[in-house]
Structure formats: structure tokens, C-alpha cells
Design a protein around this nucleic acid. Structure first.
Lengths: 230, 230
DNA sequence: CTTACTATTATGTACATACATAATAGCATA
DNA sequence: TATGCTATTATGTATGTACATAATAGTAAG
């Protein structure tokens, strides 16, 4: 069986996993053996297997060898688009409206103290993003004032702070979590739903090395679903 | 500047992106130029850049070249662990209990018709997974009966159907979505919460090529949060 | 100006060779 | 038996060379 490209190798490997020639938890043949069987270079096999390991299909360990993952770790890659793009991809008209903005805020919610220090000065922004004029998501955002030294010159009246931050403040890593909550009175008014309705919330925090850049709490419209593929 | 391994190249590339030597949306030097600058092989540069492209940091196009992503597509990779593992990782005791099981069911909810045909025969399973004796997640699951021809011999009384499926029925792809909902009376009883409380739901469907294997609706305990890193 | 064709470009990849390294197996010693 | 050291193993990677290919730029013809 001649296979002379890495995608072909990967296809054949997936086929053998799928038809249980190679069972979950079991060792598969060595790279050198597979290369011999397929009539290609070992590096080519390595390339294919590495890609499958990155996807969680295979587990690889030096000297031990390569095993089919016992329980394939299902990975859903969530691409977190710009809200603007998410709304426009729906074929609807996007609009952003600033509700409230202030500086020299302190972290006044318990969840913020996970990341900010009590002495941090924060910019607070509350805004609404709409889809065809209807509320899509409410944004409550804190930005580390130290990170935006010239904030007085910045304008978040016309444009979303997230887009500005992404373009201007590099981040190294972040955290994100998803939850369901009963909508508060304040936000239910903005979303034009009933207090107590279940809403989908996303909280995201980004860091530049050790420094917190921003924390945002997004509260989506009723019946919002976040989709991904496996 | 001598860099002779791909991880070193990647680190230097990330540094230049971070300090805005290379700005978002802009073209970076060609692979051959970078290889010349770093004193390494072009393939080594390619290896580093490809990994960054896979992460959404760079965009690459033949002939055009490589650009820093204008808005880095934030990708959160959700690893979807076995429920058992998720609970055990909390340091608590996992337990599974079957509530209801039946065969020859038809797709009786609108959401199921997205995937199943009206004529499909389904196995229905309702179960509860607990953490230290407290309800953690309720599982409502439909399995394509055609996929499990010897179902009568199968036992989901002691063990979770998901673990059995993962070990025995290979899947090619799937879909997953996350939502918030107000808890129904039935499920709120099982979860020991109030009807109307907001709960986090995950719906997942897996396929073997064109054939639906299973659809599961997981309803998590109150205040559940799904976390990931960026 | 538009269309079609060809040349060029930068990424994408295969190969053989060589070296690196994490990790286990085997062996010797106390 | 336990410990420590060395050899071996399978994956991990770097290189130079060669070829492949998607995509754009340039040119010629109508």
C-alpha cells in the first residue's frame, strides 16, 4: 500500500481507528514500521500522527509509542468572533450603543477580585449591542486604567472597546467561562425580557503576562445558543 | 540573531507581534527572509509559523505571504471530559443512576428532528450523575437503535451510556451547543432546585458519517460554570 | 477596457540523513 | 529486594534539496 503524503497517511490511520483495527487504548505500529508499510518517509508519518495527537485522537510518548486515545477527548473549538461579526453573520444590522462610562472605579464585585487588586483603578463601560435594532448582548466591562494611560482621549461612544483593545493592546492569555443565570431587573430591562428569565452569560478576562487588561461580562438575549462542532 | 529551533522562532515571532514590530493586519517577512535572519532552515520557520497559524495568531496564504491576524480570533478549546472524570477532578465521589430506559421511541421533540428522521427507532435513557451524592447533571439521551443492534444485551443500569458509546461506537464528527434555560418542573425535582431556576444546558449530537449515533441533553446543577482558557 | 494566457512568487510538502531526547529496560551492585 | 547506572528505544526535530501548488502579477490580443 503506497501512500506518499501526510494527509493520505492520516486518512488511513483514521480508517484503522474507525474500523477498530486499532482499538482505543492500544499501541499502534511504530512510525518506522508504518513508513515501511506505506512506502514513505518516517517524517511523513510523524507529520500525520502529530496532527492527530494535536486533535486528541492519538496519545504519543517517547519510547513507549503511540496509542489510540482511550476516550477520545472531545474538543470543541469555540471561535469567539467579534460581536459585530457574529451579528453581521446572521445577516442582520449591527449597532453599538454606549450606556455608561466612568473612570477610577474600584473592583466592586466579588468575581472581579479574582483578577484585579483592590487598589486597581478601573474604567467601567456598559454598552449594548443590537441586531436589527433588537438587543443582542449587554456588555459590562472593566478595563485596567493603567493599561490605557491616555484614556481621556479615547472614545468608546461610537465604537466597541473590545475592538479597540484587540487592535491596540496585545494580550498573552485569558480565561473564559460560560454560565446560565436568572436575569436581573436592570439587565432584563435592557434586554427587553422578564426579570428571572434564564440568560446565557460569558465572562472573559485577558492578561498581558501578569497584568489584567480587561474583564467583561456579556449577557446574551433570551434563547441565545452558542454552537460549535466536534 | 541565531535561532536554531522552531520553538525559538515561534517565541521571537510572538515577541515581535506583541511589541507591535509587526502590527495586526500587516505582512511579515517571507519565510526565506526570516530563515536568513535567524540562520536556520526555511522549513524550521515554516514549522513555527504553521503552528501560530493553527492558533489563529497568523493568517497564511500562498504567494501573498503571512500576515498578523487583524483581530486574533480568540479560540477557546473546550475539552469535554467524561462526566465521571469531571466530577472526580473536583475531588468528589462520582455516581451514576439510571432513571428510565426504553426502546422503540420516536423523535418526539422538535430539536431531535434536526438530526433524526421521523421513522428512526431510538433508545431513550434518562440518568443522573451525582457528585458526593448531590445531583450534578441530568442526562436525557437518545441513541439510534440501528447503531446498537444488540441493545437488549446492553446494560446501562450500572454504567453511563456515554462511556460505552465512546469505547464501542466510533464517530466521525459532532455538533455541540450551549444554552441557558429556565428549569422545568421535572428536572428541577431531580436537581433539587426550584422550577424556573436558570440552568446551563449542553446539547451534543455525534455522527458516524451521515448516520446519527446519539443526541444527549445535559442539564447541569444550578450555578454550574464551564471554564476554558484562551 | 476586458479577457486569456504565462510567468513569478511565497507557501506547502516529501525525502534522506543526521542528531536530540524523554523514557523505559536491562544489568550490576549492595 | 532496592538502588543506581547504562543501553536501548521510539518519538522529536534540523537541514538541504527538490518538487508542488495556490494565487497574483504581467503581458498580449481583441
Amino acid at each position: 500500500m503506497a501512500i506518499n503524503n501526510w494527509l493520505g497517511v492520516q486518512t488511513e490511520v483514521l480508517k484503522r481507528i474507525h474500523d477498530r483495527t486499532w482499538k482505543p487504548g492500544e499501541i499502534i505500529p511504530r512510525e518506522t514500521d508504518l513508513a515501511y508499510e506505506f512506502g514513505c518517509a518516517r517524517v511523513t508519518v510523524n507529520r500525520a500522527l502529530r496532527a492527530l495527537a494535536d486533535k486528541g485522537v492519538l496519545d504519543r510518548k517517547r519510547k513507549v509509542g503511540t496509542t489510540v486515545a482511550l476516550y477520545p477527548t472531545s474538543k470543541a473549538t469555540l471561535k469567539i468572533p467579534l460581536i459585530r461579526k457574529e451579528i453581521q453573520d446572521l445577516g442582520t444590522t449591527y449597532n453599538y450603543k454606549l450606556i455608561r462610562q466612568s473612570t477610577n472605579q474600584t473592583p466592586n464585585e466579588k468575581r472581579l477580585l479574582t483578577h484585579f487588586s483592590i487598589n486597581d483603578n478601573l474604567i467601567y463601560i456598559e454598552a449594548i449591542h443590537t441586531s436589527d435594532g433588537k438587543p443582542f448582548v449587554i456588555e459590562n466591562r472593566f478595563i485596567n486604567q493603567k493599561i490605557v494611560p491616555n484614556f481621556k482621549n479615547q472614545q468608546f461612544e461610537e465604537n466597541s472597546p473590545n475592538e479597540w483593545l484587540l487592535a491596540n493592546i496585545p494580550y498573552t492569555h485569558g480565561e473564559i467561562n460560560f454560565a446560565a443565570t436568572n436575569c436581573s431587573v436592570d439587565i432584563s430591562t435592557l434586554l427587553d425580557i422578564n426579570p428571572g428569565d434564564a440568560v446565557f452569560q460569558v465572562e472573559r478576562t485577558t492578561f498581558d503576562k501578569e497584568e489584567v487588561i480587561t474583564n467583561v461580562l456579556l449577557t446574551y438575549h433570551k434563547d441565545y445558543r452558542l454552537k460549535a462542532s466536534l
